[in-house]
Amino acid sequence: MKDSKIRTLGKYKESYLLMAPYMIFFLMFTILPVVLSIVLGFTYYNMIEPPRFIGWYNYIRLFLDDDIFIIALKNTLFFALVTGPISYILSFFVAWMINDLSRTLRSIATSVFYIPTVVGAAVFPMWRLIFSPDEYGYLNGLLMGMGFINEPVAWLLDKEYVLAILILVQLWMSLGISFLAFVAGLQTVDRSLYEAGVMDGIKNRFQELWYITLPSMIPQLIFGAVMQIVVSFSVADVSIQLAGFPSTEYAGETMVTHIMDYGSIRYEMGYASAMAVVLFFLMVFTNRVVTKLLNKVGI
């Protein structure tokens, strides 16, 4: 058995050699950090003293003593519940709508829709100007001019509006990797299937979409779902740039910003690692549920 494995390794040594750089980086920057986070989650570690094992204390503290973590957890779940499905569906339907354009027009349309994802951080000042708390803010000026409000509203400082605004901006930036995967996947669907579908009784584009396009794009759909889950649960920059760090009464706090608070400001790396582990398993659980749902509907 061992000799057989050695012969197989020797037979495909060029392939393994080409895979080696990726596998090394994957192990160093993905697998190893996850394992270290799980280990450090059971310790007190401040980056000065050696890690000290404290068992489940960090996790007990998370759910019983850290009220801000509970707020961040609720915000993150709500954020993911709203932005994840909407962004996923929006990414697919935009890709589907531009799929039949000519190659040049499709490339232009793809660039236009993908630009917000690329330049998202660069246009945060524009969003701050739109939601500026004085009468010079675009939204306040518009609403005051139309008579809907009598005085400026501090949109990004009022806890009632912060989360809704962050979701709106995140949706504007949502056509990312999933969108590109769907654009590529739609181009790989065998055109002869559509001709066969017409002969089998498919009468409109929505039947064509459900019975031919979606089943033919299983890898891209699963990949898009995984990427969308990761993006939805790892929101941080939009909250920090628009709502502040921390935001008013932690209205825009997410699990990632809470991890950054304890990891890069307070240097409680053991506690931050425990939060990262909770977020990791939350992503894994959500990914399993979404994958089963997609498989259940035949996708």
Rank of each mutant, 00 (worst) to 15 (best):
K2I: 13
K5S: 14
I6K: 14
I6T: 12
R7L: 13
R7F: 09
T8Y: 15
K11C: 05
K11Y: 12
Y12A: 04
Y12E: 11
S15Y: 11
L18S: 09
M19Q: 10
A20Y: 03
L27C: 15
I31W: 04
L32H: 08
V39H: 11
F42R: 01
Y45R: 01
N46Y: 05
I48P: 06
P50M: 12
F53A: 08
G55W: 01
G55V: 02
G55H: 04
W56F: 15
Y59R: 00
Y59L: 09
I60T: 11
R61W: 12
L62S: 02
L62D: 08
D66N: 11
F69T: 11
L73Y: 03
N75E: 05
L77A: 06
F79N: 01
V82C: 00
P85T: 03
S87M: 01
Y88H: 04
Y88W: 08
I89L: 11
I89A: 14
I89M: 05
I89P: 09
F92T: 01
F93E: 04
V94H: 03
R103A: 13
T104E: 14
R106W: 04
I108Y: 05
I108N: 05
S111D: 07
V112F: 12
V112D: 04
Y114W: 05
P116C: 07
T117W: 15
V119M: 06
A122S: 13
A122Y: 03
F124C: 04
F124A: 10
W127Q: 00
R128F: 03
L129Q: 15
I130P: 15
I130D: 09
D134C: 08
D134G: 14
Y138R: 06
L139Q: 01
M144N: 06
M144L: 02
M146R: 08
G147Y: 05
I149V: 13
N150L: 09
N150I: 03
E151N: 06
P152Y: 00
L156E: 05
K159R: 15
K159N: 11
A164R: 07
A164P: 10
L168A: 14
L171G: 06
M173L: 12
L175Q: 06
L175G: 07
G176L: 01
F179K: 02
F179T: 02
L180R: 00
A181R: 08
F182W: 00
F182A: 02
G185K: 01
G185W: 07
G185C: 01
G185F: 00
Q187S: 15
V189C: 12
D190T: 11
R191C: 06
L193F: 12
E195L: 04
V198D: 14
D200R: 02
G201N: 02
I202C: 13
K203I: 09
N204C: 05
Q207E: 15
Y211N: 13
L214Q: 04
P215R: 01
S216C: 11
S216N: 10
Q220K: 00
L221F: 07
I222S: 11
V226F: 10
M227A: 11
I229Q: 05
V230S: 14
S232E: 01
V235L: 14
A236T: 05
S239F: 00
F245P: 11
P246K: 03
S247M: 08
G252N: 04
G252Y: 04
E253R: 06
I265N: 15
M275P: 05
V277I: 07
V278R: 02
L279K: 03
F280P: 08
L282I: 06
T286I: 01
T286G: 00
T291S: 12
L293S: 10
N295H: 07
N295S: 10
I299R: 07
I299W: 07
I299H: 02
